[in-house]
Design a protein around this nucleic acid. Structure first.
Length: 648
DNA sequence: CCTGTCTGCCCC
DNA sequence: ATTCTGC
DNA sequence: GCAGAATGGGCAGACAGG
C-alpha cells in the first residue's frame, strides 16, 4: 500500500525547515527504513523534480510561468479574489502561492469530484505526474493545467504546494539527490564506507531509483539485525553496478582555483608530476561503442525499470525506448551512443561522430570527450558549436558546422572497466589507440609536467590556439563519476586579469527575486552602456551573481530612490527582458565577464556591427562607483573590446 | 503560416 | 557557467 | 570542501494565438 501523499508533503515540509544535512539524512533514513519499496523509488525521482532518471527523455515541460498563467485564468473564471502577482512577489515561490490560494476552503465547494482521486497516495500522484508529462501537441498546456488543478481538488494546501514545486522543478528543500544517497548509505550503518559504494554505484547508472531498489531488496533479504553481514553483502551488491556501454556514466567534474600556484600546490602534494589537458569551449560528450541491447545487464537497468509501467498503453519492452530497437538504428552497426553532460542521448545530432566511432577499431569502449566546432584547423565560437545541438536539419547543419570530438579519457575498453585505473594509465591506453582510422575523433594532447613555468607555457599555448585554458589533473587519480573534486582543476583564461572583460555599466532596472532572494525584493540587475550620440543607455546584460546577502540589502536601499514605473526615455527599448522596476540611470557599477558575445536580444553596437553585444558569465564586482552615468563604458568602447578580441 | 512566449535536472 | 552560504 | 541554491547568455524546439 503506497503511503498517503499527505504524509509525503509533511515529510518534505519537515525537511525544508531543517538546515543541518545530518538531520535531513536522519529523517530520510527513517522514512526509507519504514516505507514500501515503490514509495522510496518514487521519492528518489521526485526529489529531483523528475519522474524518471535523467537519461529517460520525459519532462514536464511545464514550469512556473505556465502554472501562473493557468492559475490566473482559472481564478478569473471562478471569480476568486486572489492576487497571484502580489503573493508571488512576497514569497518568491510558486508552491507558497498555491498553498495560500488553496487555504481558502470555499474554493472547490461546488465542484463535482472524481472519487478515484480521494485521499491521494504517493503512487497515485506519481501516475498522474506521468500523464501530465506525457501530454503533448495542441492544447497540451491547457490539459496539463486542468490535470494539475484537478490534483489540487483532492489535496490539502501543503500537498498542493509540493505538487506545484515538483512539477516546476524547484523543490527548494536544501536537499537533493546526493543527500538522498547519503540517507540510503545510512541504512547500512554509520560508517563512511557504505557512502563510497552507494555514490559510486549511482555514478555508474545515473538512476537513484535503481540504487534504492537494490539496497532495499538486499536489506529485506538479509535483515537489518545482522550488521556486519549486511554491510559486506550490500557492498557486494553495489559493486555489481559497473560501467555498461549504453548506460551513461556521470561525467567527472572540475573544480576551479584562483591561481596557478594553488593548482600546482594541490597537485604536487600528491605526486611529483601532474597532467595537463586543453580546456575546450564546446560540449561535453561521453561516447559509447558496442552497446549490447540484448544483454541482461542492459535490460535490467533500462528496459525493465519500474517506471516503464507508467507509460500509457505500452508494455515495458516497448516503452521508453530511447535506446530504440537495434534494428531501427540506421547505419549504427556497432551500437554507438553519445551522451551529454546531463546524460541526455545526443547520438542523432552527430552522425559524423557515429561513423567515426564505428570506424575506430575497438569492439567496445566508453570515451570522455568534448565536441567542438572545427573549421580549417581552427576552433569556432561556442555559440556556433551549440547550433549542432538539434533535432531537425542535422544533415544540413553538420556541413555548416563540422565538429571534432576531442577524446581525453577512456573509462571502458573491450569489455574492461578502467575507472579504477590511474589517470596516467588510462591516458597511455587512449594514446595507444591512435591509428589512421580516427575520422572526426582527435586524441587530446596530454602533458606530464611538474613546475609552474611549464604550466604557464602550456596554458599560453592553449590560449593562443583559441582554447579556453587548461585542465590540470592528478596523475594517479581514479575516474570519479559525478564527483567535483580537486583531482581535476580548471585554469580558465579568465584567471588572467588581462583576459577578462571589465566594464562599468549603468543600472537601468532590476528584477524581483525568487526563493531566498524574495525577502530582499530584488534578485537581479539590468545594466547598460552609454551611447553619447543619442544620449541614451543601451542594456547589455542582467547581473545576478557576485553579490552577498548583506549587499542585496544595501543595494535595495540605494536603488529605491531611483525607481520609476515607466521606462525612462533615455533607456533604449528592445526585446530584452523588461525589468520589474525601471531605474533612472544614475548608478554606475563594475561588472566582470569572461567575454563579449553576439546577442539577439541586446542591441548595443548593432548600428555599427549589424548585431548586438552582450556579456558571457557576468558578475558584479563593485556596486556603486560614485561616478556619472555618462562616464560609464560607452557603446564604442564595448565594440572596440569586441573587435579586439575577435582580431586576436 | 508567422510570430511571440516558454521551456530545458538545455548547453556553457 | 559564477558566486554565495550553511554546515 | 561539499552541497545546495541563487543568478547569467543563448541555442533549438514546442506550443499558443493571431
Amino acid at each position: 500500500m503506497s503511503v498517503k501523499f499527505s504524509k509525503i508533503a509533511k515529510l518534505l515540509s519537515d525537511i525544508e525547515k531543517i538546515s543541518s544535512r545530518l538531520e535531513m539524512i536522519d529523517l530520510l533514513r527513517e522514512f526509507f527504513s519504514e516505507a514500501d519499496l515503490i514509495d522510496i523509488q518514487i521519492i528518489s525521482y521526485l526529489i529531483e523534480g523528475r519522474i524518471a532518471p535523467k537519461f529517460v527523455p520525459i519532462e514536464f515541460n511545464y514550469s512556473e510561468k505556465s502554472l501562473i498563467n493557468g492559475l490566473k485564468i482559472w481564478i478569473e473564471a471562478n471569480e476568486i479574489d486572489f492576487d497571484i502577482d502580489y503573493i508571488l512577489e512576497k514569497s518568491g515561490d510558486i508552491g507558497d502561492v498555491v498553498e495560500e490560494l488553496l487555504s481558502d476552503k470555499k474554493i472547490f465547494m461546488n465542484d463535482s469530484r472524481d472519487k478515484s482521486l480521494r485521499g491521494l497516495s504517493l503512487e497515485k500522484v506519481y501516475s498522474e505526474f506521468w500523464q501530465i508529462a506525457s501530454y503533448d501537441g495542441k492544447d497540451s498546456v491547457q490539459r496539463k493545467t486542468d490535470k494539475i488543478i484537478s490534483l489540487f481538488k483532492y489535496s490539502n494546501p501543503l500537498e498542493s504546494k509540493y505538487i506545484s514545486r515538483i512539477i516546476s522543478g524547484k523543490l527548494r528543500l536544501g536537499l537533493n539527490v546526493k543527500t538522498l544517497l547519503d540517507a540510503v548509505a545510512a541504512l547500512l550503518g554509520e560508517g563512511k564506507e557504505s557512502k563510497y559504494y552507494v555514490d559510486k554505484a549511482y555514478g555508474f547508472c545515473g538512476d537513484a531509483g535503481y540504487i534504492v531498489k537494490i539496497v532495499r531488496e538486499g536489506i529485506d533479504e538479509i535483515g537489518i539485525s545482522n550488521d556486519e553481514k549486511l554491510l559486506s553483502s550490500l557492498i557486494n551488491i553495489l559493486e555489481e553496478v559497473k560501467p555498461v556501454p549504453g548506460i551513461p556514466i556521470f561525467p567527472e567534474l572540475v573544480n576551479r582555483v584562483s591561481t596557478f600556484d594553488d593548482a600546482i600546490e594541490r597537485m604536487l602534494k600528491e605526486s611529483d608530476r601532474f597532467i595537463t589537458q586543453p580546456k575546450f569551449d564546446g560540449m561535453r560528450a561521453q561516447i559509447h561503442i558496442g552497446v549490447d541491447y540484448k544483454s541482461d545487464n542492459f535490460k535490467e537497468r533500462v528496459w525493465s525499470s519500474f517506471y516503464s509501467n507508467y507509460v500509457d498503453g505500452k508494455d515495458s519492452n516497448e516503452s521508453l525506448d530511447m535506446f530504440s530497437s537495434i534494428d531501427s538504428i540506421k547505419g549504427n552497426s556497432k551500437g554507438v551512443k553519445i551522451f551529454s553532460r546531463n546524460l541526455e542521448d545526443i547520438t542523432d545530432m552527430y552522425p559524423e561522430l557515429v561513423s567515426s566511432a564505428i570506424a575506430f577499431g575497438v569492439d567496445s569502449a566508453i570515451f570522455d570527450s568534448e565536441i567542438v566546432g572545427f573549421i580549417n584547423g581552427k576552433f569556432i565560437p561556442f555559440q556556433d558549436t551549440m547550433t549542432r545541438r538539434r533535432k531537425y536539419g542535422v544533415d544540413y547543419q553538420s556541413e555548416e558546422i563540422p565538429v571534432k570530438a576531442f577524446l581525453f579519457d577512456v573509462l571502458y575498453l573491450d569489455g574492461k572497466d578502467l575507472t579504477e585505473d590511474n589517470l596516467i594509465g588510462r591516458i597511455e591506453l587512449l594514446e595507444s589507440l591512435s591509428s589512421d582510422k580516427k575520422g572526426d575523433f582527435i586524441i587530446s594532447d596530454s602533458h606530464r609536467i611538474n613546475d609552474t613555468e611549464k604550466l604557464e607555457s602550456v596554458f599560453n599555448d592553449s590560449v593562443e590556439k583559441g582554447l579556453e585554458g587548461v585542465i590540470v589533473k592528478l596523475i594517479n587519480s581514479k575516474y570519479l563519476p559525478g564527483k567535483r573534486s580537486y583531482d581535476w582543476i580548471k585554469l580558465k583564461k579568465s584567471i588572467d586579469k588581462k583576459l577578462v572583460d571589465t566594464v562599468d555599466l549603468v543600472l537601468l532596472g532590476y528584477y524581483l527575486g525568487s526563493g531566498s532572494r524574495a525577502k530582499f525584493g530584488i534578485g537581479a540587475l539590468l545594466g547598460g552602456v552609454y551611447d553619447a550620440e543619442s544620449d541614451t543607455f543601451i542594456p547589455v546584460t542582467k547581473i545576478g551573481t557576485g553579490i552577498t546577502d548583506d549587499e542585496w540589502g544595501m543595494i535595495m536601499k540605494r536603488v529605491s530612490s531611483s525607481e520609476t514605473d515607466l521606462r525612462p526615455k533615455s533607456i533604449a527599448d528592445g526585446s530584452y527582458d523588461v525589468p520589474d522596476k525601471w531605474l533612472f540611470p544614475d548608478i554606475v557599477i563594475t561588472v566582470e565577464a569572461d567575454e563579449i558575445s553576439k546577442s539577439k536580444v541586446y542591441t548595443a553596437g548593432s548600428d555599427k556591427l549589424g548585431y548586438g553585444l552582450a556579456l558571457r558569465f557576468p558578475r558584479l564586482k563593485v556596486f556603486d562607483r560614485d561616478k556619472d552615468a555618462t562616464d560609464a563604458t560607452s557603446v564604442e568602447e564595448l565594440v572596440d573590446m569586441w573587435e579586439m578580441r575577435k582580431g586576436e
